[in-house]
């Protein structure tokens, strides 16, 4: 509960943050809301030598109408995602998913960019943005680039961002008129999901992603394909775990996780179809 010693610098802008990470190298870590990193440091499971605090880069905290998409600054707090009128209109699935992150204290401190860059497969927002077909904007020493959510998550807590890059924006396609469902199954309200499902349907299209069903957030493409092929919700939901690779832990066996994924996918699709 007492972290190892570390240095602390504060960045005033994304450019400064990127130059600081270039300067301090691999043992440096960005600090945004701190709700994933600080617990790991207190347990000494993470021992960065430098923390680059980007928590006060205020120009990265916004939700904007970007025409065909909604643009969300990486340092937007979960509470601001949850209560954004723009998101509630154009991507209500994401706003709703943000309302299930942790507890109110966590949602007032934690940021959407921090959650996505941390890439915990048990977190809600990576899967929710994956289901929605989001694009992530990252900034590095040579400027910015876009990474599709489907190409972002490479392994447990690892992403396709380079060590000297920083996530700056999340772009979510507008989903007006789509039905949606979000199912989070856990034992206590503030916990990570044992299994979660984010799903939307519009006309013949559908998107389904799974929380905590593998080392990365899982895009359940087989469910979407089955629906596109005319399968019933019940039959499509049976495909929920086709792309998943779940692990056992204290809360779930592999079999139970697969079972939950199917039940919750069915429920999410029923909500999305209602």
């Amino acid at each position: 509960m007492i972290p190892a010693a570390f240095d602390y610098v504060r960045a005033g802008s994304a450019e400064e943050a990127v130059s600081l990470i270039a300067e301090h190298g691999e043992d440096a870590k960005f600090l945004a809301g701190g709700h994933s990193l600080l617990p790991l440091m207190k347990l000494r499971l993470a021992q960065p030598t430098v923390l680059i605090d980007i928590g006060r880069v205020n120009d990265l905290s916004y939700v904007r109408d970007g025409g065909d998409h909604v643009a969300i600054g990486a340092l937007t707090r979960h509470m601001d995602v949850e209560t954004s009128d723009v998101l509630r209109e154009h991507a209500p699935l994401l706003a709703h998913a943000a309302s299930h992150v942790g507890d109110p204290q966590v949602r007032h401190r934690g940021t959407i960019g921090g959650s996505i860059a941390h890439a915990d497969p048990a977190s809600d927002l990576p899967a929710a943005t994956l289901a929605l077909g989001a694009t992530y904007v990252v900034q590095g020493p040579n400027g910015t680039r876009e990474i599709a959510a489907a190409d972002f998550y490479e392994g447990f807590l690892t992403t396709s961002m380079a060590a000297d890059e920083m996530l700056t924006e999340i772009r979510v396609p507008k989903m007006g008129g789509a039905g949606w469902g979000f199912q989070k199954f856990n034992r206590r309200a503030q916990d990570w999901a044992i299994v979660g499902v984010a799903a939307w349907r519009r006309n013949g299209d559908a998107g389904v992603a799974l929380v905590n069903m593998g080392s990365v957030p899982i895009l359940a493409s087989s469910v979407a394909s089955a629906l596109a092929g005319g399968a019933s919700i019940d039959d499509a939901a049976e495909q929920a775990a086709a792309e998943a690779d779940p692990q056992a832990d204290l809360n779930a066996s592999v079999e139970y996780r697969i079972h939950l994924a199917k039940v919750l996918t069915r429920r999410a699709l029923e909500a999305a179809s209602g």
């Binding site: 617990p39 347990l43 507890d103 034992r187 206590r188 309200a189 503030q190 916990d191 204290l250």
Partner: peptide, 16 residues
């Protein structure tokens, strides 16, 4: 002890 933090040892909260 695999429940050595309050993330694994589930003390119910007021909401539970």
């Amino acid at each position: 002890l695999t429940t050595s933090t309050l993330a694994e040892y589930l003390v119910p909260a007021a909401s539970d």
